[in-house]
Amino acid sequence: MTVQVEIWTDINCPFCYLGKERFEQALTDFAHRDDVEVVHRSFELDPTLSADESGPVIAKIAHKYGISQAQAAANERGIGAQATELGLPYLTEGRDYGSSFDMHRLLHHALAQGKQDELLDALYRANFAEQQSLFGSHERLVEIAVATGLDESDVRAVLADPDAYAAEVRADEQEAAQLGATGVPFFVIDRKFGVSGAQPPAVFVQALNQAWADREPAVQMVGGADVCGPDGCELPVRG
Protein backbone atom coordinates (compact mmCIF):
# COMPACT_ATOMS: atom_id res chain seq x y z
CA MET A 1 0.00 0.00 0.00
CA THR A 2 1.52 3.30 -1.09
CA VAL A 3 0.69 6.96 -0.68
CA GLN A 4 1.19 9.09 -3.77
CA VAL A 5 2.25 12.70 -3.31
CA GLU A 6 2.12 14.99 -6.34
CA ILE A 7 3.95 18.29 -5.99
CA TRP A 8 3.37 21.18 -8.36
CA THR A 9 6.41 23.47 -8.38
CA ASP A 10 8.38 25.97 -10.44
CA ILE A 11 12.15 26.35 -10.44
CA ASN A 12 11.68 30.13 -10.20
CA CYS A 13 9.82 29.75 -6.89
CA PRO A 14 11.94 30.09 -3.73
CA PHE A 15 9.17 28.66 -1.57
CA CYS A 16 9.15 25.54 -3.73
CA TYR A 17 12.84 25.19 -2.91
CA LEU A 18 12.10 25.55 0.81
CA GLY A 19 8.94 23.46 0.63
CA LYS A 20 10.73 20.49 -0.92
CA GLU A 21 13.19 20.45 1.98
CA ARG A 22 10.45 20.79 4.60
CA PHE A 23 8.47 17.98 3.00
CA GLU A 24 11.53 15.74 2.95
CA GLN A 25 12.13 16.50 6.62
CA ALA A 26 8.53 15.51 7.27
CA LEU A 27 9.10 12.18 5.55
CA THR A 28 11.76 11.30 8.11
CA ASP A 29 9.06 11.57 10.81
CA PHE A 30 6.46 9.58 8.86
CA ALA A 31 6.33 5.94 9.93
CA HIS A 32 5.49 4.73 6.40
CA ARG A 33 7.96 6.89 4.48
CA ASP A 34 9.17 3.91 2.44
CA ASP A 35 5.65 3.60 1.06
CA VAL A 36 5.45 7.16 -0.26
CA GLU A 37 5.69 7.77 -4.01
CA VAL A 38 6.55 11.36 -4.96
CA VAL A 39 5.89 12.79 -8.43
CA HIS A 40 6.81 16.36 -9.35
CA ARG A 41 4.37 18.24 -11.59
CA SER A 42 4.94 21.33 -13.72
CA PHE A 43 3.76 24.85 -12.90
CA GLU A 44 5.13 28.05 -14.45
CA LEU A 45 4.85 31.19 -12.35
CA ASP A 46 4.98 33.21 -15.57
CA PRO A 47 4.13 31.11 -18.64
CA THR A 48 4.26 34.24 -20.85
CA LEU A 49 8.05 34.52 -20.63
CA SER A 50 9.91 33.82 -23.84
CA ALA A 51 12.87 31.45 -23.85
CA ASP A 52 15.36 34.30 -24.29
CA GLU A 53 13.87 36.65 -21.67
CA SER A 54 15.64 37.06 -18.34
CA GLY A 55 16.71 39.73 -15.88
CA PRO A 56 17.51 40.52 -12.24
CA VAL A 57 15.15 38.90 -9.74
CA ILE A 58 15.00 41.86 -7.36
CA ALA A 59 13.90 44.27 -10.10
CA LYS A 60 11.33 41.73 -11.29
CA ILE A 61 9.88 41.29 -7.80
CA ALA A 62 9.73 45.05 -7.22
CA HIS A 63 7.84 45.59 -10.48
CA LYS A 64 5.49 42.63 -9.99
CA TYR A 65 4.38 43.58 -6.48
CA GLY A 66 4.65 47.35 -6.79
CA ILE A 67 7.27 47.72 -4.08
CA SER A 68 10.68 49.37 -3.98
CA GLN A 69 13.81 47.47 -4.90
CA ALA A 70 14.96 47.96 -1.30
CA GLN A 71 11.82 46.19 -0.09
CA ALA A 72 12.29 43.43 -2.65
CA ALA A 73 15.89 42.98 -1.52
CA ALA A 74 14.73 42.77 2.10
CA ASN A 75 12.22 40.08 1.12
CA GLU A 76 15.02 38.10 -0.52
CA ARG A 77 17.11 38.35 2.63
CA GLY A 78 14.14 37.08 4.65
CA ILE A 79 13.77 34.06 2.38
CA GLY A 80 17.52 33.52 2.61
CA ALA A 81 17.26 33.42 6.40
CA GLN A 82 14.56 30.74 6.16
CA ALA A 83 16.77 28.74 3.80
CA THR A 84 19.69 28.99 6.23
CA GLU A 85 17.51 27.58 9.02
CA LEU A 86 16.86 24.57 6.80
CA GLY A 87 20.52 24.16 5.93
CA LEU A 88 19.99 25.26 2.32
CA PRO A 89 22.37 27.61 0.48
CA TYR A 90 20.69 30.72 -0.91
CA LEU A 91 22.03 33.72 -2.83
CA THR A 92 20.14 36.81 -1.76
CA GLU A 93 21.78 39.01 -4.40
CA GLY A 94 22.67 38.65 -8.05
CA ARG A 95 20.10 36.01 -9.02
CA ASP A 96 18.06 36.27 -12.21
CA TYR A 97 14.79 34.90 -13.50
CA GLY A 98 13.62 33.47 -16.81
CA SER A 99 11.40 30.95 -18.52
CA SER A 100 11.33 27.55 -16.85
CA PHE A 101 9.43 25.79 -19.64
CA ASP A 102 12.43 23.90 -21.04
CA MET A 103 13.38 22.85 -17.49
CA HIS A 104 9.92 21.40 -16.96
CA ARG A 105 10.22 19.50 -20.24
CA LEU A 106 13.53 18.09 -19.05
CA LEU A 107 11.98 17.13 -15.72
CA HIS A 108 9.38 15.04 -17.55
CA HIS A 109 12.17 13.38 -19.51
CA ALA A 110 14.01 12.76 -16.23
CA LEU A 111 10.86 11.20 -14.75
CA ALA A 112 10.85 8.64 -17.54
CA GLN A 113 14.50 7.89 -16.72
CA GLY A 114 13.97 7.65 -12.95
CA LYS A 115 16.03 10.81 -12.34
CA GLN A 116 13.38 13.45 -11.77
CA ASP A 117 14.10 14.16 -8.12
CA GLU A 118 17.84 14.43 -8.75
CA LEU A 119 17.34 16.86 -11.64
CA LEU A 120 14.92 19.03 -9.67
CA ASP A 121 17.42 19.31 -6.81
CA ALA A 122 20.18 20.23 -9.27
CA LEU A 123 18.03 22.92 -10.92
CA TYR A 124 17.13 24.39 -7.54
CA ARG A 125 20.78 24.52 -6.52
CA ALA A 126 21.75 26.14 -9.80
CA ASN A 127 19.04 28.77 -9.48
CA PHE A 128 19.23 29.60 -5.79
CA ALA A 129 22.79 28.80 -4.75
CA GLU A 130 25.10 29.24 -7.75
CA GLN A 131 26.37 32.45 -9.34
CA GLN A 132 26.23 31.22 -12.93
CA SER A 133 22.91 32.00 -14.60
CA LEU A 134 20.47 29.14 -15.11
CA PHE A 135 18.48 30.89 -17.82
CA GLY A 136 18.99 31.57 -21.50
CA SER A 137 21.47 28.79 -22.23
CA HIS A 138 20.73 25.24 -23.28
CA GLU A 139 24.37 24.41 -22.64
CA ARG A 140 23.90 25.24 -18.98
CA LEU A 141 20.86 22.94 -18.80
CA VAL A 142 22.77 20.16 -20.58
CA GLU A 143 25.61 20.47 -18.10
CA ILE A 144 23.25 20.24 -15.12
CA ALA A 145 21.18 17.39 -16.54
CA VAL A 146 24.18 15.27 -17.51
CA ALA A 147 25.66 15.74 -14.03
CA THR A 148 22.56 14.02 -12.61
CA GLY A 149 23.16 10.95 -14.77
CA LEU A 150 21.00 11.71 -17.81
CA ASP A 151 22.33 10.83 -21.26
CA GLU A 152 23.73 13.91 -23.01
CA SER A 153 22.43 13.04 -26.47
CA ASP A 154 18.93 12.44 -25.08
CA VAL A 155 18.99 15.74 -23.19
CA ARG A 156 20.11 17.64 -26.29
CA ALA A 157 17.40 15.96 -28.35
CA VAL A 158 14.71 17.05 -25.87
CA LEU A 159 15.95 20.63 -25.79
CA ALA A 160 16.24 20.77 -29.59
CA ASP A 161 12.61 19.69 -30.06
CA PRO A 162 10.23 22.30 -28.60
CA ASP A 163 7.38 19.79 -28.75
CA ALA A 164 9.16 17.14 -26.66
CA TYR A 165 7.20 16.75 -23.41
CA ALA A 166 5.44 20.08 -24.05
CA ALA A 167 2.03 18.43 -23.88
CA GLU A 168 2.92 16.83 -20.54
CA VAL A 169 3.91 20.21 -19.09
CA ARG A 170 0.70 21.86 -20.29
CA ALA A 171 -1.37 18.95 -18.98
CA ASP A 172 0.19 19.37 -15.52
CA GLU A 173 -0.59 23.07 -15.56
CA GLN A 174 -4.18 22.52 -16.64
CA GLU A 175 -4.63 19.89 -13.96
CA ALA A 176 -3.29 22.27 -11.32
CA ALA A 177 -5.92 24.81 -12.37
CA GLN A 178 -8.66 22.17 -12.20
CA LEU A 179 -7.54 21.23 -8.69
CA GLY A 180 -7.76 24.87 -7.63
CA ALA A 181 -4.05 25.65 -7.35
CA THR A 182 -3.38 29.35 -7.68
CA GLY A 183 0.24 29.20 -6.51
CA VAL A 184 3.04 26.84 -5.67
CA PRO A 185 4.25 24.74 -4.02
CA PHE A 186 1.02 22.75 -4.11
CA PHE A 187 0.96 19.23 -2.65
CA VAL A 188 -1.78 16.71 -3.41
CA ILE A 189 -1.85 13.43 -1.49
CA ASP A 190 -3.71 10.50 -3.04
CA ARG A 191 -5.90 13.02 -4.88
CA LYS A 192 -7.80 13.55 -1.61
CA PHE A 193 -5.74 15.90 0.54
CA GLY A 194 -4.13 19.17 -0.51
CA VAL A 195 -1.45 21.25 1.18
CA SER A 196 -0.65 24.68 -0.18
CA GLY A 197 2.62 26.48 0.46
CA ALA A 198 5.96 25.70 2.12
CA GLN A 199 4.34 24.53 5.33
CA PRO A 200 6.24 23.40 8.46
CA PRO A 201 7.15 19.69 8.46
CA ALA A 202 4.53 18.97 11.14
CA VAL A 203 1.75 20.01 8.74
CA PHE A 204 3.00 17.56 6.11
CA VAL A 205 3.29 14.78 8.69
CA GLN A 206 -0.30 15.39 9.75
CA ALA A 207 -1.50 15.25 6.14
CA LEU A 208 0.46 12.07 5.43
CA ASN A 209 -0.89 10.37 8.54
CA GLN A 210 -4.42 11.35 7.58
CA ALA A 211 -3.94 10.01 4.07
CA TRP A 212 -2.48 6.76 5.40
CA ALA A 213 -5.36 6.28 7.85
CA ASP A 214 -7.84 6.97 5.07
CA ARG A 215 -6.43 4.02 3.13
CA GLU A 216 -7.20 1.54 5.93
CA PRO A 217 -10.20 -0.80 5.46
CA ALA A 218 -13.54 0.76 6.31
CA VAL A 219 -14.23 -2.08 8.78
CA GLN A 220 -11.57 -2.74 11.37
CA MET A 221 -11.52 -6.39 12.52
CA VAL A 222 -11.17 -7.00 16.24
CA GLY A 223 -10.59 -10.43 17.72
CA GLY A 224 -11.77 -13.63 16.08
CA ALA A 225 -14.49 -16.29 16.38
CA ASP A 226 -15.81 -19.41 14.65
CA VAL A 227 -17.23 -18.52 11.23
CA CYS A 228 -18.78 -20.19 8.20
CA GLY A 229 -17.72 -19.27 4.68
CA PRO A 230 -17.79 -20.51 1.07
CA ASP A 231 -15.50 -23.41 1.96
CA GLY A 232 -17.53 -24.54 4.92
CA CYS A 233 -17.49 -23.88 8.64
CA GLU A 234 -14.57 -23.83 11.00
CA LEU A 235 -14.75 -26.83 13.25
CA PRO A 236 -14.23 -26.25 16.95
CA VAL A 237 -11.16 -27.85 18.44
CA ARG A 238 -12.17 -30.50 20.97
CA GLY A 239 -9.95 -31.53 23.80
Rank of each mutant, 00 (worst) to 15 (best):
R140S: 06
H32D: 10
P230Y: 10
G183C: 05
S99N: 14
E152F: 08
Q220H: 14
V205L: 10
Q210C: 09
L134Q: 00
L134S: 00
A177P: 05
I11P: 01
Y90M: 05
F101D: 01
I61T: 12
L88G: 00
F186V: 01
P201S: 05
G183W: 03
R156Y: 07
Q132I: 09
V227H: 08
S196H: 04
Q69W: 12
R191M: 10
A202F: 11
P56S: 06
M221A: 10
G78W: 08
V142R: 03
S42C: 04
A157Q: 13
T28D: 10
C233P: 03
E24Y: 09
G224D: 15
E139Y: 10
R105E: 03
S50K: 15
A164W: 08
D163G: 15
P201A: 07
D214C: 05
A218Y: 14
N209A: 06
E139T: 10
Q210P: 04
Q4S: 14
F23Q: 00
H109M: 13
N75W: 09
G19R: 03
Q4R: 15
R33F: 09
E6G: 08
G98F: 00
A157H: 11
R95M: 04
I58D: 02
R156Q: 11
D29H: 13
I79Y: 04
E44C: 02
G114E: 08
D35M: 09
E143R: 07
